[in-house]
């Protein structure tokens, strides 16, 4: 069984937000829904000695996923391959998961009355052997997707082969499966 993960290389990301648009357009999300914001940290420091980092995000597909635990209907689920997803038919829009997620990864669909989130593009892309939209669209190849159980995968090599690797809000114990290179 694979365990899907994403590695985001902040040294490459330029904050172009193409991944945000790709996700929204191809997943046919309402215009005000964003699964994968790209934030800008900085410039910090004082001119001209400044730094700036862009931080793309998405659902972290946490191993210890508070959103799944919080969901009263069972709509929020985690597949064996680690993909956390929402079964739209079951969701009542209580937002318990929205509140439970520390990463702001869940968004309300005001048209449907449900809550949605990144599902690693499981239906149209990953299960079809294709890359998630946000990964394919990135000119900078700042997002890498793959099976982290597979020692030959790029994600495995990047996570295990670099010193500068970390995860967001690791201290909360959610065991995110999105890694950041910095």
């Amino acid at each position: 069984m694979p365990r899907y993960a994403m590695v985001i290389d902040t040294r490459k990301c330029t904050g172009c937000q193409s991944c945000t648009v790709a996700c929204r357009v191809h997943n046919k999300l309402p215009v005000d829904m964003i699964y994968n914001p790209v934030t800008t940290h900085g410039p910090v420091g004082k001119f001209p000695h400044v730094r700036m980092t862009h931080i793309p995000s998405l659902c972290m597909h946490c191993d210890v996923s508070p959103c799944v635990d919080a969901c009263p209907t069972g709509a929020s689920q985690q597949r064996e391959d680690g993909i956390v997803w929402v079964e739209a038919e079951k969701c009542v829009g209580c937002k318990a998961c929205v509140m439970a997620c520390p990463y702001g990864a869940r968004v309300s669909n005001h048209e449907e009355g449900t809550v949605q989130k990144c599902n690693f593009c499981k239906d149209d892309r990953v299960d079809q052997g294709k890359l998630p939209w946000c990964v394919q669209t990135c000119h900078q190849k700042a997002r890498v997707f793959g099976d982290i159980e597979d020692e030959n995968s790029e994600v495995f090599k990047l996570v295990n082969g670099s010193k500068n690797v970390g995860r967001l809000l690791e201290e909360l114990g959610t065991e995110p499966f999105v890694y950041y290179l910095y």
């Binding site: 919080a70 209907t73 079951k90 009542v92 449907e112 009355g113």
Partner: peptide, 18 residues
């Protein structure tokens, strides 16, 4: 709720506090 008519579903996940 976003979908009040489906409210009965909230009884489904015994692990959830809600």
């Amino acid at each position: 709720l976003g979908r009040p008519f489906q409210a009965l579903r909230v009884f489904m996940n015994p692990k959830a506090i809600l």
